[in-house]
C-alpha cells in the first residue's frame, strides 16, 4: 500500500515536471517577457538591465530550475496585464471555478449513474429510449450552444434564472468567496452547472449503462438470482457495486476535464473563475498567468488521478494484496 502510494507520487512528480517544462517554454519563448513588462519609452540599456535582473541571460537549465523553485513556492511572477502577483489573481478566482466544477461533477455523477442504471434495467421501454436519444443530443451539441440555449430559455424567455455572473457572494475564511450560501448565488450556479456537467453526465450515463448490462450478464449475477435474492439486492447490491468500480475511474478523470472545460462555460456565463481569467490572459498574451494556469490544471489532474487510484483500491478488494492472498 505504501509502496503503491509512493510509486504514484513519483509518477505524479514526473508528470508535473514535464508540464513545468512546457509552461517554462511558454513563459520563456512566447513573446518577449521584457517587452511585455516595460513601457514604450524604456531604453535599450534599461531593458538589458531588466533582462539581467530577471535572470534571462542565465543558461536554460538554471532558468528552468529557478522557475520550478519559484513555482513550488507558488510564485509565478506578476501578471503583465494586471500588474498583480499571478498566484493572488488565481487564488481569488479559484473558488468560483471549483464551486462550479464541483456542483457540475456531483450533478453529472448522480444523474449519470441514475439514468445509466435506469436505462440498463428498463431496456426497451419508451422512457429509456427517450433518455438515450436525448443523451445523444447531449454528447453531440457543443457546450457553448447548450449554454446559449439554456440562457435563452430560462433566463431570457422564462426569466427564472440569471444569465450571467455569480450573484451575491460571501467570504468563508479569509479568501474563499462562496456563492453557495446566498440565494442569488445558488440560482446563478444552476445554468452554468448544467451546461458544464451535461456532457460528462451523458458520458457517465452511457458508461454506466454499458457496464451495468455487462455485469448483469455475469455468472455471479445469475447465481445471485438463482439464490432467490430480491431484484433490489441483485440490481443495486450486487450489480451496481460492480458497475461502479470502473465508473469511478472515469468519473474522477472527468472531474479534471470539467475544470479544464470550464473555460467555455465561464466565458458564456461571464463566470468570474480561472477559466475566464485564462481566456483574458490569452487575449493579452499574459504569459505568466497562462503558464500558471497550465500548471494548475496539471496539478488538478494529477491529484484527482491519485485520489481515483486510492478510491479504486478501497472499492475493489482484489487490488488489496495482503497476507491472506497467500493462503488458499
Amino acid at each position: 500500500m505504501i509502496a503503491f502510494i509512493l510509486r504514484r507520487i513519483v509518477q505524479s512528480v514526473i508528470v508535473m515536471l514535464t508540464v513545468a517544462i512546457v509552461a517554462f517554454a511558454l513563459f520563456r519563448f512566447v513573446g518577449d517577457p521584457v517587452a511585455s513588462m516595460v513601457g514604450q519609452e524604456t531604453t535599450l540599456a534599461e531593458r538589458a538591465e531588466i533582462r539581467q535582473a530577471l535572470g534571462l541571460n542565465d543558461p536554460f537549465p538554471v532558468q528552468f530550475f529557478n522557475f520550478v523553485t519559484r513555482a513550488v513556492q507558488g510564485d509565478f511572477g506578476v501578471s503583465y496585464r494586471l500588474q498583480q502577483p499571478v498566484m493572488e489573481l488565481i487564488l481569488s478566482r479559484l473558488p468560483a471555478t471549483l464551486e462550479l466544477a464541483l456542483v457540475s461533477g456531483v450533478l453529472a455523477f448522480f444523474f449519470g449513474v441514475g439514468f445509466g442504471v435506469y436505462t440498463a434495467l428498463r431496456r426497451g421501454n419508451w422512457l429509456s429510449g427517450s433518455i438515450m436519444t436525448i443523451s445523444l443530443i447531449g454528447v453531440s451539441l457543443p457546450t457553448f450552444l447548450i449554454g446559449v440555449l439554456l440562457i435563452w430559455v430560462f433566463a431570457v424567455e422564462l426569466q427564472w434564472l440569471p444569465s450571467f455572473g455569480r450573484g451575491d457572494t460571501v467570504y468563508i475564511g479569509d479568501w474563499w468567496r462562496t456563492g453557495l450560501l446566498t440565494e442569488s448565488g445558488r440560482a446563478s450556479l444552476i445554468l452554468p452547472a448544467i451546461t458544464l456537467g451535461l456532457y460528462q453526465m451523458t458520458l457517465i450515463m452511457r458508461l454506466v449503462r454499458a457496464e451495468m448490462l455487462e455485469v448483469l450478464r455475469t455468472d455471479y449475477i445469475k447465481f445471485a438470482r438463482a439464490r432467490g435474492l430480491s431484484n433490489r439486492a441483485v440490481n443495486f447490491g450486487h450489480a451496481l457495486k460492480n458497475t461502479l468500480v470502473p465508473v469511478i475511474t472515469i468519473t474522477g478523470l472527468q472531474m479534471g476535464s470539467i475544470i479544464a472545460f470550464s473555460i467555455i462555460t465561464e466565458t458564456v456565463f461571464q463566470w468570474p473563475g480561472v477559466g475566464a481569467l485564462f481566456i483574458r490572459s490569452v487575449q493579452f498574451v499574459d504569459v505568466p498567468v497562462m503558464a500558471a494556469y497550465l500548471m494548475l490544471i496539471a496539478l488538478v489532474f494529477v491529484v484527482i488521478n491519485l485520489i481515483v487510484d486510492l478510491l479504486y483500491y478501497a472499492v475493489d478488494p482484489r487490488l488489496r494484496v495482503d497476507r491472506s492472498s497467500a493462503r488458499g
Binding site: 455475469t218 455468472d219 455471479y220 445469475k222 438470482r225 472499492v315 478488494p317
Partner: peptide, 19 residues
C-alpha cells in the same frame, strides 16, 4: 429459488461476487 431449489453453476471462478 434458493429456498426450495438450489443451483450450483459450472464455473466457481465467476460464480461469486468479487466485491
Amino acid at each position: 429459488r434458493g429456498r426450495r431449489i438450489g443451483m450450483v453453476f459450472q464455473d466457481p471462478l465467476t460464480s461469486l461476487n468479487p466485491l
